[in-house]
Nucleic acid binder design. Structure first.
Length: 555
RNA sequence: GCCCUCGUGGUGCAAUGGAUAGCACGUAAGCCUCCGAAGCUUAAAAUGUGAGUUCGAUUCUCGCCGAGGGCGCCA
């Protein structure tokens, strides 16, 4: 517990004591006391709506309850400087100014860990995201999914969850066969043979490149192999290349996974049968029209789903159920899947499967990431000019820059349909929001460099001097960070961190314009302010790190 | 037709059921002999619509209107 949390804890305990003393409820009925930071600072440093929450229990109007709490509250000698009733029954609390500066000490002590908390209780949680088929390049939508998934994972980790990031490789189904056939066709074409692409083939440039590389390496030698061998070769080779490319693209996007889980391994380890048997044992499977079905309607799906087709092969659902069964068997208490909006119709059957395997429905959470629309020159732009295909993640990063892409996706809630303004993201000017936060970090770095040259050092001995309005604003905003992270984790909304970064940068810039940090005529104040801005820089860097954006010392 | 997501200033987005609805772009007016003006200050401008639940609704429920997505023994 850092210094700020201790202050909050002290206030909560004092309120609880007062409530008990006033006999408004007993220990059993005591609601959790929420301290929020009021929007408007005339309403104090903290506010609580506890009096409103107690209306039902105490059967009195909120303001009367608030008054009774006040009458029984011991404030002498505590951090509470002032407490008053406001509006419909809020209790606004001002704390002694010398306690506000505790946050600076907390940040300087915790450094890169400032903002970390135990809010998540170390629940074992798995986040599965991207999971694009290894049959081509990642595109725009994957970039958003990767950004949101990675940011969410970072936030969960920081908020005290035990997080694992996982990518599910669809390396077993029909699409991989199509990949192999597509490479084969391109290979033949590279040899000058008239070959037709398969009906559901992949027409991307990457496939042509792979085939041409094969032609260079083997000439026509692969034609000598029998069809089965050649197919197996293209299949495994294509998979290796495509997967390697995915991994590289994601690493370059600052997204790293703990586990790359192969669909094929489910077949090899017999896990599909394990899952099917469990569904059968639990009575959720039936046979009809020559197919084997999962009675998902038992769990609210709008129709039952085929598991084994009448040709004896599995539908895509079957290994997916086995996969989720395996996740649970590995001990995860919570599964979060991040899916594109085009898969959202799949949620009810997957949730049904989770339940059919004997688990609570809410064990699986699916975050749906809505579509991204690129705009350039005010016009909708779906296709890449270069390739005529959907814009790839790599192209987007090349054009816009990694930080801007990560920031733009991190800014938005995943469930909002998003318009990505390419001109704004590309612009290297004050119009671009990513620079705003980075600029604050660079600016502080610059001041600290100057401080060092002039022989100033930080000191936490004179923090009490930080009394100016803008300084108080910065202190309070900085103190909010751990709670912001915890809330972002709880609501699975990493974009709240981006919103926070914006706010913290604003309070800093505003402070900067109002007060001079380096002042040779006031060394104590200077040293206190250096401590303050050092803490701000750490907080901004930590927050930027959570959303995968760099914190530059110079720009 | 059924299901899901979303409707907030001119535009793009925020807001655990709480106080005077935030931010950015754009618009208008100011601020650098001074630590980085990619900054600051000020102004105008918004909850699609109709009911309901509640002390209190941008938030929850239902209807309507609008946008996107999904409804396969494809993945």
């Amino acid at each position: 517990m850092n210094a700020v949390e201790q202050v909050q804890q002290t206030i909560k305990e004092a309120l609880q004591q007062a409530i008990l003393k006033a006999r408004l409820t007993d220990t059993e009925g005591m609601p959790a006391i929420q301290l929020e930071t009021p929007r408007d600072k005339v309403n104090g440093d903290y506010a609580t709506n506890i009096a409103m929450q107690l209306t039902k229990l105490a059967k009195k109007p909120p303001r009367a309850i608030a008054q009774e709490i006040l009458d029984n509250l011991e404030t002498a000698g505590t951090v509470i400087e002032k407490i008053e009733i406001a509006g419909p029954g809020f209790m606004n609390i001002s704390i002694r100014k010398d306690y506000l500066t505790e946050v600076v000490i907390a940040v300087l002590e915790q450094g890169a860990d400032y903002g970390r908390s135990k809010a998540g209780g170390y629940v074992k949680i798995q986040v599965e995201f991207v999971s694009a088929n290894p049959t081509g390049d990642l595109h725009l939508g994957h970039a958003r999914g990767a950004s949101v998934g990675d940011s969410l994972s970072n936030v969960l980790d920081f908020a005290g969850y035990d997080v694992s990031r996982e990518y599910y490789i669809n390396d077993a189904g029909k699409q991989i066969n199509n990949l192999a056939y597509s490479i084969e066709a391109r290979y033949k074409q590279a040899l000058g043979i008239d070959a037709e692409m398969p009906e559901d083939g992949y027409h991307g440039q990457d496939i042509i490149n792979i085939a041409q590389a094969q032609e260079k390496e083997f000439g026509d030698a692969l034609l000598q192999k029998n069809e089965e061998e050649r197919f197996a070769h293209f299949r495994s080779y294509g998979l290796q290349i495509e997967l390697g490319k995915l991994q590289q693209d994601l690493a370059d996007f600052r997204v790293n996974f703990d586990e790359w889980f192969s669909e094929t391994s489910l077949y090899e380890n017999g896990k599909i049968d394990v899952a099917l048997n469990k569904l059968r044992t639990n009575g959720h499977v039936f046979v009809e029209d020559g197919a084997t079905w999962f009675r998902s309607t038992t769990f609210g799906d709008d129709k039952d789903r085929v598991l084994i087709k009448n040709d004896g092969t599995f539908t895509y659902l079957t290994p997916d159920i086995a996969y989720h069964g395996d996740k649970i068997a590995r001990g995860f208490e919570k599964l979060i899947n991040i899916w594109g909006a085009d898969h959202h119709g799949y949620i009810p059957r997957m949730k049904a499967a989770i339940q059919a395997l004997g688990n609570p429905e809410d064990m699986l959470e699916v975050s749906v990431i809505q579509m991204v629309q690129l705009y350039k020159d005010g016009e909708k732009m779906k296709m890449s000019k270069r390739t005529g295909k959907a814009v790839t993640m790599r192209e987007l990063v090349e054009e816009v820059g990694l930080d801007a892409v990560r920031y733009f996706f991190a800014m938005r809630s995943g469930d909002s349909h998003m318009d990505f303004d390419l001109d704004l993201a590309v612009s290297q000017s004050n119009e671009n929001p990513v620079y705003y936060a980075q600029y604050a970090h660079a600016r502080i770095s610059s001041i600290l460099r100057a401080a060092q040259e002039q022989g100033f050092t930080a000191s936490d001995e004179h923090l009490v001097l930080l009394q100016a309005e803008k300084e108080i604003d910065v202190l309070k905003k900085m103190g909010d960070f751990p709670q912001v992270v915890a809330e972002a984790a709880k609501h699975r909304s990493p974009h709240r961190v981006a919103t926070y970064i914006q706010e913290l940068a604003t309070t800093f810039h505003s402070f900067y314009n109002a007060e001079k940090v380096l002042d040779p005529t006031n060394e104590d104040m200077t040293r206190a302010r250096i401590a303050l801005i050092t803490a701000v820089r750490t907080t901004i860097a930590n927050a930027l790190r959570l959303i995968g954006v760099s914190a530059p010392e110079k720009m």
